[in-house]
Amino acid sequence: MALKEKALILDKNGIDRALTRIAHEVLEKNKGARDIVLVGIQRGGVHLAKRLAVKIKEIEGAEPPLGSLDITMYRDDLATRKSQPVPQATDITFDLKDKIMVLVDDVIFTGRTIRAALNSVMDYGRPLRIQLAVLVDRGHRELPIRPDYVGKNLPTSIKEKVEVMLSEGGGEEKVVILGE
């Protein structure tokens, strides 16, 4: 059954405002940008992490190191999938030791992606602390994982889909709920 757009949750300005707020919260919670590294989760989190880095630079004057993380190899459903997902690049070229890593993703749902991301990060190094920033928290957690920074809390039905569309993807920028 094809899904259709049921509601517009955030428009371009809404997304930008949310990211600005998250940037301020990150800086406030960590008392500045020192020791902060941003890592976006492939694929939706990578662009958002880049934007956060720019905003932090605008506020603090210094841009934090930016990386990307692919969690394909750490998924817990590999054994049951019909075909395997195509892995994307992981690009963490800086040392994680004693850093505060802010993981960035577009939507948090079951929490399984974040579980995979945490496992993956541990294979790259040992950050001092890991925090999680998401644009949308749509609920339905299956694991005890909670984001530190949330752009928008959004109650959804489990059958619905939340889609974050960014201008980097080549279209209109918005967050929508899709349903039958």
């Binding site: 190899m73 590999l78 054994a79 049951t80 999938r81 019909k82 075909s83 395997q84």
Partner: peptide
């Protein structure tokens, strides 16, 4: 990895 798909 590519051959390890579960239901194949």
């Amino acid at each position: 990895f590519l051959l390890s798909g579960g239901s194949k």
